[in-house]
Nucleic acid binder design. Sequence first.
DNA 1: CACGAATTGTTCGCTATGCGAACAAAAATC
DNA 2: GATTTTTGTTCGCATAGCGAACAATTCGTG
Lengths: 259, 259
Amino acid sequence: MSDDTGAGKPRAPEGMGGLAKGLAIIEAFSETRREMTVAKAAQAAAISRASARRCLLTLAELGYVRQLGSAYLPTPRMLRLGDAFFESSTLPQLAQSHLDDARDQLNESVSLAVLEEGNSVFVARAEVTRPVSSYVRIGAKLPAYASATGRMLLADLADEDVDRYLSTTDFVPLSPKTETDPDRLRDLVRDVRARGYSVICEELELGMLAMAVPVRNRNGRTVAALSISAAIARVGLEQAEREFLPVLLARADALSRML
Amino acid sequence: MSDDTGAGKPRAPEGMGGLAKGLAIIEAFSETRREMTVAKAAQAAAISRASARRCLLTLAELGYVRQLGSAYLPTPRMLRLGDAFFESSTLPQLAQSHLDDARDQLNESVSLAVLEEGNSVFVARAEVTRPVSSYVRIGAKLPAYASATGRMLLADLADEDVDRYLSTTDFVPLSPKTETDPDRLRDLVRDVRARGYSVICEELELGMLAMAVPVRNRNGRTVAALSISAAIARVGLEQAEREFLPVLLARADALSRML
DNA sequence: CACGAATTGTTCGCTATGCGAACAAAAATC
DNA sequence: GATTTTTGTTCGCATAGCGAACAATTCGTG
């Protein structure tokens, strides 16, 4: 707003400043910011307190947040916003029967993920019941560097995009076996690119391995990754490559042909 | 803007008009509106084309939608907005272990739902693998009138709120057995209120029954419904009441004590 | 407990963002 | 091909939203 310069300069591309601010506040809610006051929201969204206050008043008026004392918390109505993607996107629905088939055939949980700002986001899932396994929420995300799907999706990026990702990511280990060296990760992504599938073993969660294959659109771009996960106590790497990989590749190929 | 009247009249409560418009556009995306042009978005959100255009430009600039010709479609980034609720809310995390226990004990899928504008919205799930069952997405919603959780949640509303709901709802049958008579539904909600749990049989989906019990906060209000669903080919109503109900009530009670 | 400092929430004069109407361009219909 | 309808874009104008100032609240210290 106040950063514009020269007189007579054409206007910046038009937009809706208040919308941008409000969305910044919504995205600022997190596990460490379960509720926010006007001041906290302003700080988290890098806007003035007056703007933050207006946004929160509008969000409250529309039912997206509720007020508790001077704090604001998101309500379930917020879920409608995420629904916009699910109701619009055909990919999860097209994929579901393929995931179900793969799950039934291999008796392991199967999921589909897309890349979103350095994260692998689950958009579809077929889950097999295990005593230990917990429900993975569609919409949940995993860091790309530590997940089979994430590495599969990174493998489709141009080298410079992979490098940009590697240079701006904070590599938090998620298990004692998480690879966090950027050079090593670059090599791993290249390996995935060469091999055409991705496997990680205990990097995301001890005791678990995961395998992912690409789902491509008709331009050959990888638009999603189809993955399977299993406990290494039950399934070794060789068995995964022998039994899981052909089925995943076949399912991914069938799905790719629909895109 | 132009609807304000008398001079010297105090300002309306302050807000952020552009945010309201942008959120209306986001919510307008649906299965019948998978993509929208500027004109379609303006119509769907009941705003001017110029405003719709500004909103879509901002949403595109921030990565929430992408442009395809003159149409705009949501991107996975939209999921972050729904995340605001999941990352803030403690209920799904508190509930998960209870759902897992109930699922393991009863060997049927168990879920937790909250009421959101006439819909029952899943916020947590423990799923048992069945050849027929498909994955129910957290965030997915069911009409309250046709679901066990929905009726359980409606039962906690005041009579006038139930009546308002019944008078403004379009009762679309979801199976040949869906109850769609408002008077009948009012009686069913009252029955649920008296009985303290809700059961539906084949109203949502042929061949399936579902049972739900209330999860209450310390004020006694029903803040969520815990439910189980099973195929009637395997489980009859009497068995459900004999075997499922005690476990659901115990789990719901344990969860209620944490709230 | 009182006081001062820091933080937070609210207000209001001012201006530039966002408005609506008009116009340009594209699409649809005859 | 001409006309009509619909859609996308522009721009003069005004009010919604801005930032700074102020009021209120909270926190820290003596």
